[in-house]
Nucleic acid binder design. Structure first.
Lengths: 356, 356
DNA sequence: TTGAAAGCGCTAACAC
DNA sequence: GTGTTAGCGCTTTCAA
């Protein structure tokens, strides 16, 4: 009676519990030691082709999958990536997330979401991650500030961290070309005959304001190249939100010499701007041109001319980067991002001269 | 020289490696066995208050956090929930996700995203999850079909599965009151003087079509209660997308006796409908009334009157439900969902009689 | 009430 | 090449 339930007729021999097969079951079935099975699992070369074949066959037959928990315990790996993401960017974030998922689809890495609704949550998550081994790498989206930077730097000592569309010291940074992005928008506006163009951007980040600065440079370059002087550098600081855009533009239009065009730093601001223009009794496009930024889904529906950022690709690249670092494959030399481009819709109207 | 690096002056005694403290370190520091520490960790009552206190103090001092991997290995738990989600619903899904995150914030459960871009991916993820212990529970959003149902049923034998806004046999289902939702929309339309109201819904799901059926019932109830007969039950099947809505309504408007109002089963369809109305040279609101469904962010921007579904709350409830099942707390008796309600914006105009 | 010991399923170091 | 063994950090008997 040695063959207890090891050979139930028709049943696959397994360890007592009804659970999934373990490496032991595979070893027994294949008539090898568990070390050998482990080697096969880990693509260790020192296994003879014959043995490897036999083991693989059993693995397939038993539909064996190594336990992530056990593996993680000994290797200190979790096979999980984390993404720290502010929800307020909504669609833009979704595109990035799609890119990440896309990159992870082939691999055996899973993605854990750490969402940030209020600023404190970011550092809370980061300190949690430094305490507990929960992810093998982290992607940080559009977050900034002293606290986040510190948290990332600390975590970065333990695992790779890449920041998307943010400039965090210590972590790897993946930044779209904001200088080019804003340049394209303003150049478009100038090409349409505008000269008094206001730039509505968000407040400069106290610590790492590279992004706003880059956009400002693009704005200036467009003027410079067009041979226009920047007597009145109409840069207005407003909240990233719709309300921010609304209020900023309402104020601008009420001024003595209102701009004829407004370049916004987010689509939401631009939507707010649209409203402000309409409420001022002016026509979008004909009287005042408005451009957005990010190319969020919404932009299409409201006919907003905007700057498309490679959101999906940034997600894809960041996740791919982490995976290749973690799996130790050649560090796919500095990945390149497609440049931003302008999406022309209706919010800028036609050329001012023609329009008359 | 026994006190190797155990008592570096000023340093916290730890096991050799620079890593985080383990249960062993805590036990040693507190002068108890590791079993006792484990009991404290697991709220086991059989620990004297004094000991418990002492151990807790050490835990706090060392900033000890038990390893999820180790714990998972022995308990078969991962402290992770999964969410299977189709990206095509976009904003609606985001709200659900926000609700889930909200519910999980206090707990020590993490959330893994399994995104579905193409139908096959759903069953791929499900079969992966049945093979590998990666989550302790799963939330399935707005997915249907034979394959998904089968996969869920199989997984449900291993861990709790709850389906949101889908009707999957075997799993727990969390459904908003679609009957009421569509009833509200159609009642509103009737109240505005409409009698020829078309219902544009998505194709009935081959297997579990409860949702479309519920909406149809709400549609009929509104007519019945208004004392209107349903001679021409204008139910049109269209794709859930914008194009679906566009084509369906374009066709309707070209018919011999076009409807004066269209109730759609998704906001995207409604946006498509809006376009079709405009292209037909008719005015939205004044000539043709349109209602949406879901109350997606977009609806606000295009001024769509629509049915708001408790998306956030469904996420919250589903995650809360899973957690309470997993932690074995009293199964918070059948959680209740707030009812859908109508959000009135501009797409239905005023009463037909007044409008003339 | 508590400590010691036996694993959970796997990898890696060590023998042969 | 391959089997054996000692842990990874924790929970859970089993004694005491």
């Amino acid at each position: 009676m040695l063959t207890d339930m090891e050979s139930v007729p028709g049943g696959t021999p397994r360890s007592r519990k009804g659970g999934r097969p373990t490496i032991r079951d595979v070893a027994r079935e294949a008539g090898v030691g568990i070390g050998t099975v482990s080697r096969v699992l880990n693509d260790d070369r020192r296994v003879s082709p014959g043995t490897r074949h036999r083991v693989m066959a059993v693995i397939r037959r038993l539909r064996f999958r190594p336990s992530t928990a056990a593996r993680g315990l000994v290797k200190g790996r979790t096979q999980t990536l984390g993404v720290l993401v502010p929800f307020f960017t909504k669609h833009y974030f979704l595109e990035i997330l799609r890119g990440i998922e896309q990159a992870l689809a082939g691999t055996d890495y899973s993605l854990i979401i750490y969402s940030v609704e209020r600023p404190e949550q970011a550092s809370a998550h980061l300190s949690f991650l430094s305490r507990v081994r929960r992810v093998d790498g982290l992607i940080v989206i559009s977050l900034s500030g002293r606290a986040v930077a510190t948290g990332c730097r600390r975590l970065a000592r333990r695992c790779p961290v890449v920041a998307i569309d943010a400039n965090l010291g210590g972590a790897m940074n993946l930044l779209p070309d904001h200088e080019l992005g804003m340049y394209l928008a303003v150049k478009h506006l100038i090409g349409l005959g505008h000269e008094r163009i206001a730039l509505v951007d968000r407040p400069e980040d106290p610590v790492f304001g590279t992004i706003t600065e880059a956009r400002r440079q693009g704005y200036r370059r467009a003027f410079r190249e067009a041979g226009l002087s920047l007597r009145s550098p109409r840069v207005v600081i407003a909240d990233y939100s719709q309300e921010g855009g609304y209020e900023a533009v309402a104020r601008l239009l009420a001024a003595r010499r209102p701009p004829t065009a407004v370049a916004c730093a987010s689509d939401l601001q631009a939507v707010g701007a649209l409203r402000a223009v309409e409420e001022a009794g002016l026509r979008v496009g004909a009287d005042i041109a408005v451009t957005g930024y990010h190319d969020v889904e919404l932009a299409r529906y409201v006919g907003l001319t905007t700057v498309h950022l490679p959101a999906f690709e940034m997600g894809e690249v960041s996740a791919g980067l982490l995976v290749s670092i973690l799996t130790g494959r050649q560090a796919a030399e500095q990945p390149t991002l497609p440049p931003p481009y302008l999406v022309v819709r209706d919010s800028c109207g036609r050329h001012r001269a023609q329009a008359r």
